[in-house]
């Protein structure tokens, strides 16, 4: 199927793909900075900080993985036949 070929093509060109994706991430941040912030929608401080959700996502996602895996390894994870 052609679709599978496209994915294989992308996987072969990982370096180019990475560059495109980084450019995209920069564009997302720029989009938030140039965005018009009218009074009608920006009630709270959270709405007025540039790229607030970028910082929130990076920190939030990092913590979610670290804390999740941390607690799992600390005491949540048991062998699969734990309950018998």
């Amino acid at each position: 199927m052609d679709f599978v070929k496209y994915i294989d093509l992308l996987r072969k060109n990982m370096k180019t793909l990475k560059k495109v994706l980084i450019a995209y991430l920069v564009a997302v941040v720029i989009f938030d900075v140039v965005l018009p912030r009218d009074e009608a929608h920006a009630h709270y401080w959270i709405d007025k900080v540039f790229a607030f959700w970028t910082v929130f996502s990076v920190v939030g996602c990092f913590l979610l993985i670290k804390i999740g895996k941390g607690i799992a390894h600390l005491f949540l994870s048991k062998d699969e036949d734990y309950y018998g």
Partner: peptide, 14 residues
Amino acid sequence: SEMLQILSFTGLVF
């Protein structure tokens, strides 16, 4: 913009 930031940067950290 809010959703694009959340989704894109979650992808990055992943």
